[in-house]
Amino acid sequence: MAHITHVKIYGLLGRKKPISFDLQRDVNVIFGDNGGGKTTVLKILDAALSLNGTTMLALPVQKAEVDIYSVEHKQVIKHVWDRKSAAASRQSEAMAEWIETFPSGEFPHQFLRSVDAEWTLSPMLKLKKGGWKHTFLPTTRLYLSNTYKVSSGKPLTEAELDSLFFENVNKSWLRYYSNVLARVRAIQEEGLRTVANYALAPKIEEKTGPKLDPLVAYDRVKKFWKRQSAAEIALGTKASFVKRYETEENFRLIVDSLNRLEEAIEKAMVPATLFMQKISNLFSAGKKIALNNSNELQLQLQDGSPLSLAALSSGEKHLIAILLAAMSAGQSSIIIDEPELSMHIDWQRQFVETIRDLNPECQLIVASHSPEVMAEIADEKIVSI
């Protein structure tokens, strides 16, 4: 996990003076007119986090320095890319091709020096391929897959693009939700072990007294066992449950433990539940997001009938794609270009707050020229380009 702390860019769009700015751990809005370099800055940040020097070659910039704080290493790592070094490296690559024309063993390799065309790190670290974990959502975020047919080379139809959106969104959702369900299963297994331990333990003589309201305890434990599809078998009637909870110490310890585990399950489910609530609250005409039998996201109309996500408007698609990516980002950086695209003005006003509600641990970096997006953002979190 890592986040960006400082950026310095030389020669952005031919500027004579470098631009330099700090980035906050939570929220950052890069603000400016169209064509002012906002998108280029985001691409530089993505390239630095990805350790991708090839992307930098196509950007109108001479040099970039990006400081990234590594949570694992507990230090700031300076990432530097220099076009001059990249040009020298390309010359070295050309020389390497020339060397291959010599018969084996006849070229004096000891005189050859190569220059790294990629990002240089200080201090040097060995990172996994792809660099630091992060998410970059460009303006083409709805279709982050190849939008051209491999066989014919023709652009995809509108229907095929809708199908691609549905596929990409549900792949991302299922990847996230499967991790949530895995945590829930682990908690449930702990609950079963707790029940077995207390059920097999010697009778406890010390009386601690009820810690929960018996009726509240009944509802919480019933909810826990309902996830196991065994609520009635496990609990019996409400009256018998209350009596046992008030009089049997071992039973009470089991119930109190299951109550804590149910609270842990609810906590693990909060982001996913909140995601669907937020989306549903922002949608109009009574539409809401629900899960089908395969745990895929689907649209539910006011009359209860289902509808594919592919039928959503452009603004609604952007909203789902962005919020899902933000929720899945964890403590890493999420970089978004023009989140206001196709968004209703009310959504723009709630955008940053909604993302922070879904994932308060991510570093949010957005480029925007919408006053509504930054309406409630503190000045120190706004970078003017």
Rank of each mutant, 00 (worst) to 15 (best):
Q277P: 06
T208G: 01
S145M: 12
A217M: 01
L142V: 09
F102W: 05
S85D: 14
W132I: 04
T55F: 08
A159M: 09
E248G: 01
S163H: 12
K149R: 15
S294V: 04
S152P: 09
I19S: 09
A64G: 10
S104V: 11
L121T: 13
G36A: 15
F241M: 01
A268Q: 04
A290S: 15
L57P: 06
S92P: 02
S328R: 00
S333C: 06
L299A: 08
L323P: 10
N250I: 02
S89V: 07
L174C: 00
K171M: 04
R349V: 13
K154N: 11
P155V: 11
L42S: 11
T147L: 12
P123M: 12
E72A: 03
S314E: 14
E232G: 06
D162H: 13
M374G: 06
T55M: 14
A47Y: 07
H73L: 14
V184L: 03
A88K: 12
V221E: 00
K203F: 10
G304R: 09
E190G: 04
L258A: 02
D303F: 13
A239V: 05
H109W: 08
D82F: 09
I233H: 07
L42R: 10
N293M: 06
L215P: 01
I355Y: 01
A48I: 05
L59M: 08
V216A: 01
F21S: 09
V80C: 08
K211A: 02
L161Y: 10
H3P: 03
T54Q: 13
H79N: 15
V184S: 04
L200T: 02
E206R: 14
T140K: 09
S92A: 15
E248P: 00
P123W: 11
G236I: 07
G315D: 01
